[in-house]
Design a protein around this nucleic acid. Sequence first.
RNA 1: GCCCGAGUGGCGGAAUGGCAGACGCGACGGACUCAAAAUCCGUUGUUCGUAAGGACGUGUGGGUUCAAGUCCCACCUCGGGCACCA
Length: 954
Amino acid sequence: MSDSTMPSQSGTSSIPPFRYSARLAADIESRWQDAWDAQGTFHAPNPAGPLKDAVAVGNRPKAFILDMFPYPSGAGLHVGHPLGYIGTDVFARFKRMQGYNVLHALGYDSFGLPAEQHAITTGIHPRVNTESNIANMRRQLRRLGLGHDPRRSVSTTDESFYKWTQWIFLQIHGAWYDTETERARPIADLIAAFENGDRPTPDGRAWSALSAGERHDIIDDHRLAYLSNAPVNWCPGLGTILANEEVTAEGRSDIGNYPVFKRNMRQWMMRITSYADRLLDDLDRLDWPEPIKLMQRNWIGRSDGARVSFSTSAGDIEVFTTRPDTLFGATFMVLSPEHPLVDALTTADQRTQVAAYQAEAAAKADNERQDDSQKKTGVFTGAMATNPVTGTDIPIYIADYVLMGYGTGAIMAVPSGDQRDFAFARAYNLPIVATQMPPASWFDARSIAPSADCSTWPEAFVGDGEYINSTNDSISLNGLTSIVDAKSRMNAWLAQHNLGEPTTTYRLRDWLFSRQRYWGEPFPIVYDEDGRAYAVPTQALPVLLPELADFKPTALSPDDATSDPVPPLARVTDWTRVTLDLGDGPREYRREVNVMPQWAGSCWYEMRYLDPTNSEVFIDHEVERYWMGPEHEGHTGGVDLYVGGVEHAVLHLLYARFWHKVLHDLGHVSSEEPFHRLFNQGYIQAYAYRDARGQTVPATEVEESGDNYTWQGETVIREYGKMGKSLKNIVTPDEMYEEFGADTFRLYEMAMGPLDASRPWNTRDVVGMQRFLQRLWRNIIDEYTGDSIVVDDASPEELVRHLNRTIVGVEDDFAHLRFNTAIAKLIEFNNALTQHVSAHKTSPISLVEPLVQMLSPLCPHLADELWFRLGHDSTVTYVPFPVADPSKLIEDTIEVPVQINGKVRARITVAPTASIEEHLELALALEPIIAALDGKTPLKTIVVPGRTVNLVVK
RNA sequence: GCCCGAGUGGCGGAAUGGCAGACGCGACGGACUCAAAAUCCGUUGUUCGUAAGGACGUGUGGGUUCAAGUCCCACCUCGGGCACCA
């Protein structure tokens, strides 16, 4: 397909005209990229649907290899961005050579806050901005030679894409969670159950006795997507509310770092908490890094405990506790300031103080409430509750360390067994009663005498200890030593007396799903005059995002907690008013003016890669089953390899799992999980330099001498961090293409370390990979003539063995994503080949061909060029990976170290099949060993054949 | 505070409990060259020794083992997650 490469143009230079230079690489690369495009080299056939090609699918195994898709930033790429893309590309190309039907594609997450914030700062419409950014990213990534199927590159902002995002929203909206079968079911099933009386209505009236509006409200209360008047995270700086996951521990926005305030607002929520158990339990069936699983487990935060009822003048109050076994030590009770019974409980003389405390707590932002974590504040309500096991009256306080959003918003306080309760009891002089006797070591460690009077303790005791003070007429825990036993005995007693039951609570909250922004998917929802929500019929999808000249949110002061969100779509009055026939004739409705959050598109995009042009369904069943279906009974199904950064551990990865499970329950997909195997790539970091004033200086202009760094003669200080504009340390792929070419750049990124580790970028080191490729090129092509030096001669036995060793090692390394060590093995082999070539001036084809094949996943352009020059007329992409000859893997002899007391003193050379006796015989005959033994007989001899001989003396 | 992960030459990093430092960068020496670049060859953990050779060496301290970078315990440092979650 190609003409022979033009000689180098650099007239004055004495560099050989056909050297593998950046110029030559650029020429090779652009020609092969065009050829791949023209021939559709990376098109992956589907078994059904619009991209069906059953013949091409054949009976090959399949591999769906996926990158976390990027949002198209206007800043362009730096060399850190493509790390994961190169990794998946190498792996995908390797799998193709192993005979797999490989699906590898990349789309764009182009809705959402980052794109919109960028549009606002530049003043350019997000659609224009987004499209030019995507075009630029496509250009930069194409230059990298990624083997993507271009037909499958979707953007979340495409109307043909977000139509289905809205459709999936309607599926979720049209479903409820059946706790009996533990899965989502269509809302029609719920209506049927109400109608035929299988399920009672909340107030017990017959379903037919309810008004249409009442029925509507009851149904809406069960939906997986529902409207809620709940405390939300209001961020005036961004003009929108945010999900819990988008708020940092400091109470600021993840994006932009603006203050976030708690506000009550009517918003769309997703009932992700219904799936808490399955999201937690199914982690066990996923091939994910353990730390990521742990982060999700912590985020879901399941804790098993019990609900216990305490009677009060205002009725029973339920508390949640993980330690029902310590109920005898509950000496007071604390409610959240927002608890609904606070008003009813508060006595007249405490009312002023309680109201003041409530107002103070409400005014505090979340972070302030968490800040003074040591100091406990609170107010007595004046009311008392009855401890159900002791029968004593205990005071009821309100305090802001009890959160309304967790458990029941009320706790029983056991100061002897809980550090926070202990601090509160100390601060307000409340009684402390021990229910467990700490072990002697506990007292020793705190230098206090064992004493039953726990008011002298310096802190609460948490752990296993003998139960004391825990008895009444009908139950006794005294003498027990195990928390588990005490809990089950107490739980049984509570159940028997109808005072409580075991229960489970979660840290996970329902997912807040509306944003008061412009650049997102409109909700397919309309409201009637009573404010009741209705789904837009699916045939009316997509609900198009109206074009807006002024897309900016109304300017708000970031610190003004009292401001209200004004969604940009609310200003488009001719769009918000719509006449629809929802079954009872045409009526006027108003549209939902919020939009979906950034995460919506990324919850399901990977499935659209599979069937990107299907206009009938979001994905064909058979296509989904083929690429993502479970491999066997108990397998979750899902993407075969998903590579991305760890920053999505709880956001994207949790939301996408949730949506996928809903779609599975409703029968739309066969897989239970979206991503079966997850791999977290590391980050490429970089050095940055600051001068004496703390200003960053351009990293490329800094000169290094030993430990000193100078910029324009001035000493600067080196720091290590992310690559970024503000640190003036960006290196772009374009610079690498210019200086070395894409193949060298790919190779360097893969060689610099293991894929999951972060490491510093060092442009200086790239030359090593270029030299390797130049040597390899020179082993095939004469640099002065451009002719091949490959011959059909026999290869020396030693090189044949080396080649076969390399094939086995490289294949294993590729399969386990250990590209850095695979490259090292290729370099070693090529170095050995170089020796042969310098001696003979020719290269045996039987060595060179496999080398080019093994190189091709890493450096596909160069490999295709060399493959072509070796006389083949098609790409090496689908040529099977070389297979090692087992007979060439066995060495004639092996060198084995001989140790005395674990220290290597000599080496023996043995046959690979040598017995233990042969090893010993040879070892004991060695001069240095005889000398070292000095006539002594070894007490013990250890021989690991082929590995080591160890002699133990004296 | 709790929970993860990681500490190996000047640098990036290799090492199924079995010869620590593969491979690459840098540095040093040599060949080629009038010279330089490029290329090729060699050396390069520290230390004692003219050498042969020896001693020490994977954050620190202890332990298990014939044998530990690797396994166990405690600690230090760095990175990350969670953080009044009852």
